[in-house]
Amino acid sequence: MHVHFLDPYRPRPSLIHALDPRVKLALALAFILAVALTPIAAWPVYVLLAALLLSVVLLSELGVGHVLKRSALALPFVLAAIPILVTAPGATLWEATLAGLSLRLTDAGLARFGSIVLKSWLSVQMAIVLAASTTFPQLLLAMRALRVPRLLVAIFGLMWRYLFVLVDEALRLLRARAARSAAPTRPIAGARPGGSVAWRARVAGGMAGNLLIRSFDRGERIYAAMAARGYDGEIRAFPMPPIPAGQRLALIGGLVLLALLVGLGHLL
């Protein structure tokens, strides 16, 4: 059990993995910002951004399928944008009456819906590549470089470390519950196996409460372990190593390219 199912990091001998985490985080955020700044229905720019993304996915050697599969996570939210198809004012493309409701699909609605879905999909894939090609300790370093307060970075680091410990604890609690929740061998009149929904919710809540109490105690023990090694409340770390010149160039080149694409989008 050496790769935890929660850890999205996938080691590969790729250029993207080798990129300095500070450069990688900055470029990934810039890409997502560029996608957001590109106007609705600037299709040529979307195509170029998609090509850029696909190149990065290929370079990362994570596998196009892996990235696509994970990107389905953001799909359910598309529901929220569906009404825009028929409410945005514009030229009618198609009309239908559904249960007495007259629905009018408009060109502007379609363009807006398509753009939102595409933007969302491009952004989430870049975020997936970032998480899958960068270890969390590297991300912490990148956060420091982006001026996230040290205390917050330290809290993130501790959270990451104990996430796995506590998720494993949560799994043990769930397993213990599963081991005790057998269905009755013969149906009992009037009784539902597993209790009511309210009861099940309260059992789950009890487990969450249990987890929190144990975490209070663990927090105290960790504090003791930190204090025993000299921790005094101030967060200290090594100074950050400089970013190599080549990577600096890659960062600037990437930012310029993205700015050009956004500019192009506004010219269309």
Partner: peptide
């Protein structure tokens, strides 16, 4: 005094092994 706690998950609170071993010397 080097105090080693019973549960190593309490003692090892850093993201990586290096960070954990370096913690005391840094402080």
């Amino acid at each position: 005094v080097g105090l080693v706690f019973q549960d190593p998950d309490d003692q090892l609170f850093s993201p990586t092994v290096f960070d954990d071993v370096a913690f005391g010397p840094i402080y």
